[in-house]
């Protein structure tokens, strides 16, 4: 019995290895696929007709080339959080004593949380220039409310005026605005009879609908890469509010008495 515990996993792993080895995926000599080469060639090239006007290939592919896909992935996240809220119990007041942690941890958390938030905002805002984007920024952001909820109690988040209702509203607003930004080209196409595609960003050879790539300000020109920066910000809001909400419920569940041993 004990021997089987080791043998079976190794057999599974070895089988997978042989499978991949025979298909040639693991070989040392490898080159980029044609699709990857095209992406890398066209997306950052401002003179090309298929450009996204962005420096970051990964985020550009996520929001431009695969925008429709990503929208539904965001919705999956949204529905998962809705389901989480539905299954989690109602927010009755927690009976029993809850203490916040010692003064050292509380103060360190209060200093650290704004820094994490600022870093996450920087990650989200520069999604089209440096690595990062809405998803990543949101993922980093959640560490801050989580730390605050652990160091104080979960009441902290309500004491600052972030009720669960407001957070859910923001979350829904984020997802809706993403859909709207994707739908605008289609609406435009209906009204003006110009060809345009769903989630279109820059002009294509047969369609001249175009989100502006630059934003002119009195000081200087800002690169917004069409919809990419906008969608990154909306996605950031959607992800951070959704996860904060989910963790608010989970932390309250955690603080309740009972269960275990």
């Amino acid at each position: 019995m004990k021997k089987l515990e080791v043998v079976i996993p190794i057999v599974i792993g070895l089988g997978l290895f042989i499978l991949l080895y025979n298909s040639g995926l693991l070989s040392v000599e490898r080159s980029l696929t044609t699709l990857a080469e095209k992406y890398l060639e066209y997306i950052p090239d401002a003179s090309s007709i298929y450009t996204s006007m962005a420096f970051e290939v990964v985020t550009a592919v996520i929001w431009d080339q695969r925008g429709f896909d990503t929208y539904f992935e965001t919705s999956v996240l949204f529905f998962a959080i809705i389901a989480t809220l539905a299954i989690a119990s109602k927010l009755e007041d927690i009976i029993g004593e809850r203490r916040s942690l010692t003064i050292i941890v509380r103060l360190v958390t209060r200093i650290l949380a704004p820094i994490i938030v600022v870093v996450s905002i920087s990650i989200a805002l520069h999604g089209h220039i440096t690595p990062g984007g809405g998803f990543q920024g949101g993922a980093v952001f959640v560490i801050a409310p989580l730390l605050l909820m652990l160091a104080y109690t979960s009441d902290w988040i309500r004491s600052r005026g972030f009720t669960d209702r407001k957070l859910l509203l923001l979350r829904g607003l984020g997802v809706t605005l993403i859909a709207l930004a994707g739908l605008i080209p289609v609406v435009y196409s209906y009204t003006t009879n110009i060809n345009a595609y769903l989630f279109q960003n820059q002009a294509k050879p047969d369609s001249f609908f175009n989100y502006p790539a630059y934003l002119q300000t009195p000081i200087s020109t800002i690169l917004v890469s069409g919809t990419i920066m906008l969608l990154n910000i909306l996605e950031f809001i959607a992800v951070l509010t959704g996860f904060t909400l989910a963790f608010y419920y989970l932390t309250r569940e955690f603080e309740k008495r009972g269960g275990g041993e």
Binding site: E56, V58, T59, I123, P131, G132, G133, F135, Q136, G138, A139, V140, F141, V142, I143, L146, F243, F247
Partner: peptide, 16 residues
């Protein structure tokens, strides 16, 4: 790109 998402989620939140 993945590293940031992974450090936030795969490391931090899963353990919690």
């Amino acid at each position: 790109d993945l590293l940031i998402a992974y450090v936030g989620i795969g490391l931090g939140l899963n353990t919690v």
